[in-house]
Amino acid sequence: MRNPLNFLFLASVCYSALALDLKGRIQWNDVCPDFAQLGRTQVLLDHGKLHGSVMEDGGFTIPGVAPGTYILTVAAHNHAFEKLRVDVLDTDSLPEIRPYFPGTPLSPPPTITLPYPIVLHARQKHDYFVPRESFNLFGMLQNPMMMLTVVVGGMMLLMPYIMKNMDPEVLQDFSQRQARISQMQSSLQSGDLTSGISALMAANEEPKGASSATTTKASAPSGVKNRGGKNKKR
């Protein structure tokens, strides 16, 4: 019982003897041009028990890293950095640095290795805000309700031309069906709305009769037909 413990102790001593100071630096770029922009930043291994601070020149040292596999993250407040996988080896050779994507298994390791000492680049400056929506026509048109209205309106405009080109028999059939649909629609719609509009327009005394009368006459001017259809829709 005693010997294995001793061995463990020795092993831990050996490990601490082999512990390495991981060095690297932050490469200033357009996203993060200097230390004033970066602010106080730490470079962490795993959950942060081993860590080092970024100094004014961008350099950092994480002291006493025992052999093993670590995930290196940069805890910067306003900038996003890539995560790296660091393999510190038992031998005297340099640690292996690889890219790492969160959530991926550590094995098998990616084939790409990055140079040591570690060079990190700020990828992005955090944008915490969403722009306030201002009134713009395009945005309004993107609204699904608006799109619906526009499409229906377009259909209404196009309807007379489609009907003009239709076979008279089909047309009759179609108009009957349309009348049915409109009947259904008007019954579906709340009475208040339709009656309110019709009262405003003061032109709705005989809606159905007018529409059927106009549509039966194929020779009637298209403009009239159009208006009849429009009235019906409303």
């Binding site: 596999t69 995930i71 969160p102 550590l106």
Partner: peptide
């Protein structure tokens, strides 16, 4: 923090 039970088999992450 999940250090990954089986060494390098698992992902290490919060």
């Amino acid at each position: 923090w999940d250090a990954g039970l089986a060494g390098t088999e698992d992902a290490k992450s919060y």
